[in-house]
Design a protein around this nucleic acid. Structure first.
Lengths: 315, 315
DNA sequence: GCGTCATGTAACAAAATCTTACGTGTTGTG
DNA sequence: CACAACACGTAAGATTTTGTTACATGACGC
């Protein structure tokens, strides 16, 4: 049989774009920009003399021919992949290790429940989660990247915002009903669950206009405990859409007030002097998508004003 | 399924090398140098962590794993190719046209009988054979390339030697026996079949040391007729291993003398100012291989001293 | 013993692919 | 209805991948 094939890289791009019906998502999966996918698809369509996608408003849909083509080439790629997997003797040892330094609360409450999705999509990357309170020192630590909560400006590192957050108290619905709390001034100091630092509570109480009258006096727990404690009805925890996202969406926590401190966010932190590996880029893309999904889900619960998406800094 | 694949270009290189069990032949098929194939194979072996070939003395053999891998990926490529062929609406119109200017004799006696092999291997190239006696003028003619017989030095064109040849008389075995011809001086002038020019006969007769006594007086035919006439026993035609190759190998013609003029050859002629297209490169590679095959077959009939292979000029 | 052949590979060149930056049109939201 | 956000399109330049050249090495044939 004649073996005329277009660029196989273009075929990969097409298969991913067809599966997602999105150039943007295909780009994220293949760790390239949407421009690269767009270019591959265009050239493939010219080469074949066949339209593969119809460009709808903000997206694309497969044409009939595109649909049958992707069904067929998917089988071809599956055959190649199965053959490759069965002959490869170093596939596991080929796995790249990626050491991620995260705060324990973020690890426990958000990252670890989601890691299965990352590792399933990226079996070639061996993720190592390094729980640490302190900012990673890339010159000394083993970590490749860090995820940190804060203002995003730290010395000697580059940081990309993953999402900006609104820091506000959360509590269980039962506690809210039982204590008849309607205003910040209704808060009882002994119910304000504390982390290691009072700083954040002071900031919020000030934003609420009650910092001169109320000071947190609840038990001091780690953040990874304040949220479950709040879920158990033991008080109010300061939290944000990410860290409390699952509990908020699940109805185990609610936000009693609209007042929030919008100054902090989650940041993807890396060594400014170092080129991103493919694994780092893959993790970053996955992480961003997952965090965005969490935040969107929370923001749909009660519609506060939409905040503009923060554009990505240069890598 | 996990979809981890090595470089698909490397897979293509591997498949061709495995099919030929030769990096050199795979390179010719894919229009690259053997170095590119070697590099792809090495990187594929590293990536997989598996040896695909055993390097024997002057060649390679597939390992067991290599053999099963190529069997599997060939199916994958076949699926991709079949899918591509069924969806493509412009495959024929995608065919590149390649206009080749050749001398009528070469066309009739050598090229046309072989063209099927080229077009079968390169269905995407539409070959146009332009028979012409004169050297192609690339500024005026439609031709992309030319094939010419001569010394290889022409103005305004670049030429690559396809093969150097030995010009010598050929005749049918029956004629040889009937006329008891053992020496050049035994030749009868009326049996020396002529083309448009006597030049070549004079050169050969001089090399044979009989030019002062013998002059060609046979009928004047075109070269595309002198060979069949010689096959029919009507006389001696001046020919070479290429043009008379099929008849020599088939036993319809023989070379009565070892004396030959080695000054001429077949040349691949192209516009020096123009970059080769893939089609041109493909045709050149195919042509060279076919001509070499013809010449080798003739030279095996009666083993004259091996002539050194002429190295390829810079493209 | 020497010439030829096939593969190996470093260094450099060429081609392919990707990114950036901006544009365009559609959609969603206030 | 206006404006912000989103997804795709594409030119120009940057980066990566692939190919070529030139030479090396070892095996094979004469």
């Amino acid at each position: 049989m004649s073996r005329i094939l277009p660029s196989l890289n273009a075929l990969k791009a097409f298969e991913a774009a067809a599966r997602h019906e999105s150039f943007t998502l295909a780009a994220a999966e293949l760790n390239v920009t949407h421009a690269a996918i767009s270019r591959h698809i265009r050239e493939l369509e010219v080469w074949l003399g066949t339209k593969l996608f119809v460009r709808t408003g903000r997206g694309v849909e497969l044409t009939e021919k595109g649909g049958s083509y992707v069904a067929d080439i998917t089988r071809g790629f599956d055959v190649l992949a199965a053959a490759t997997e069965s002959v490869s003797s170093r596939r596991r040892r080929r796995r790249q290790q990626l050491v991620v330094s995260v705060e324990p609360s973020f690890a426990a409450l958000w990252l670890v429940p989601r890691l299965g999705r990352f590792t399933a999509a990226n079996p070639e990357i061996e993720l190592v989660v390094d729980s640490s309170h302190r900012l990673v020192d890339f010159a000394r630590d083993e970590a490749d990247i860090g995820i940190r909560y804060g203002r995003g400006v730290w010395p000697n590192v580059a940081s990309d915002v993953l999402t900006r957050t609104n820091m506000t108290p959360v509590c269980s619905p039962a506690l809210l009903r039982a204590r008849r709390i309607r205003e910040p001034s209704d808060l009882e100091p002994g119910l304000l669950l504390q982390e290691e630092t009072r700083r954040y509570w002071y900031e919020w109480l000030k934003a609420a206009g009650v910092c001169d009258r109320i000071s947190p006096e609840g038990p001091t727990l780690g953040l990874h405990l304040t949220i479950p404690a709040a879920e158990a009805g033991q008080g109010f925890a300061l939290a944000d859409e990410v860290i409390a996202g699952d509990a908020l969406v699940g109805g185990r926590l609610v936000k009693p007030f609209a007042i929030s401190v919008a100054e902090y966010g989650y940041y993807f932190v890396r060594d400014a002097a170092r080129k991103d590996s493919k694994a780092m880029a893959a993790f970053h893309a996955w992480l961003k998508a997952e965090i965005d999904q969490t935040v969107d889900a929370v923001r749909k619960l009660a519609a506060p004003a939409r905040r503009p998406a923060v554009s990505k800094k240069k890598r």
